[in-house]
């Protein structure tokens, strides 16, 4: 609860910092406000984010601009079928000069990791990454290495090309705090994208020239540092959560467990994720307390990848989205289930 003057000032600082980040991102990425909000929520709470969407929705661009905006280390791994765990984590190599083994750290040692098309890699590689995400440390040889802080994984999945992919099992999906489904931009946003792209021009390189992309116009000057990020993380912890809000969360999570169309409901981790992400959303929206709208806005991203429909529901043509909609609609029409 933000009661003290210092808390208020840190909240104010956080809100200003968030506004600067959004402003900077908006110079490169058009629209996608929800994705930007979800990315910031993940960053402020330390929960990992899974983005589901077709290629070309500026997922990589968004993460790149975010890393440059906050002065964070950024790495990108394109997941493929032949990727090995050591390609991500690192390995021991023999230094021929000294005849000693040296540790070569992999790209996972970064602040912001974009795991592109995570479902294309074999389960062994997925498991290695997801274990690192959970424990925030990895083992190479006999040595343990803690991952840098902050450490955030933003993974992407393409929902349409399912051949040659390995679907993430529920237990591993549960490790992602949020799973956001990206949508296409609105016609106005798309027009703005085209307008900006047509004005990019070309860039001289060596003796020739290449067409400039959005990556070329990224401003390398960050608007804040890791300290500003820590201020935001503190501010999130100060956001007030009322008992009534907790009742709403428990009610929603409980209803997924008893719904007749669902085979698997939400785990307690879903409730925790809903609470944490709601606090971050409240801060992003300039509030120092959470309201039901935070929960309802984030419910789909927190819950949909954690529930599984039963055969009857699938045969009836129901989807996770429709079941969640019915659960949230029924919440006020009957007495509490808890």
């Amino acid at each position: 609860m933000a009661t003290g003057a210092s808390d208020c000032s840190s909240t104010q600082q956080a809100v200003e910092f968030i506004a600067k980040i959004r402003e900077r991102i908006a110079t490169v990425v058009v629209g996608q406000d929800e994705v930007v909000e979800r990315t910031l929520i993940s960053l402020f709470t330390g929960g990992h984010l899974l983005l589901q969407g077709v290629p070309g929705l500026a997922k990589t661009l968004l993460v790149s601009v975010l890393s440059k905006t906050i002065d964070l280390d950024f790495a990108r791994i394109q997941f493929t079928i032949d990727l090995l765990p050591s390609d991500i984590l690192g390995s021991e190599i023999l230094d021929q000069k000294t005849s000693e083994f040296k540790i070569l750290k992999g790209p996972i040692f970064t602040n912001l990791l974009l795991a592109d098309e995570i479902n294309r890699a074999a389960p062994k590689v997925q498991g290695a990454l997801l274990e690192a995400m959970q424990e925030r440390k990895i083992t190479i040889g006999n040595e343990n290495f803690p991952l840098p802080a902050p450490f955030l994984v933003i993974a992407t999945q393409n929902p349409i090309e399912q051949s040659g992919t390995f679907e993430l099992p529920e237990a591993q999906l549960d490790r992602f705090m949020l799973c956001h489904r990206l949508t296409y931009p609105t016609p106005d946003e798309e027009k703005e994208i085209l307008r900006r792209n047509s004005a990019l021009g070309i860039r001289r390189q060596d003796k020739g020239a290449v067409a400039r992309t959005e990556f070329d116009i990224l401003d390398d000057q960050p608007v804040g540092t890791a300290d500003d990020l820590i201020t935001c993380m503190h501010a999130v912890q100060d956001v007030h959560v009322s008992d009534v809000f907790m009742d709403h969360v428990v009610e929603l999570v409980n209803r997924t467990r008893i719904h007749p169309a669902l085979e698997v409901g939400c785990s307690p981790r879903a409730g925790i994720s809903l609470l944490k992400s709601s606090r971050a959303r409240a801060l992003i929206n300039g509030r120092h307390y959470v309201v039901p709208e935070d929960m309802y806005s984030l419910a789909a991203d927190v819950i949909l990848h954690r529930i599984r429909l039963n055969y009857e529901a699938l045969a009836d043509g129901l989807t996770g989205q429709s079941v969640l909609h019915s659960i949230m609609s029924e919440m006020g029409l009957t007495t509490s289930t808890i």
Binding site: E251, G332, S336
Partner: peptide, 17 residues
């Protein structure tokens, strides 16, 4: 009782919907 405020809030939301 305080425990029923959450229920009341949800019912009001359902009512206005």
């Amino acid at each position: 009782p305080k425990e029923q405020y959450a229920e009341l809030e949800r019912m009001l939301l359902a009512f206005w919907r």
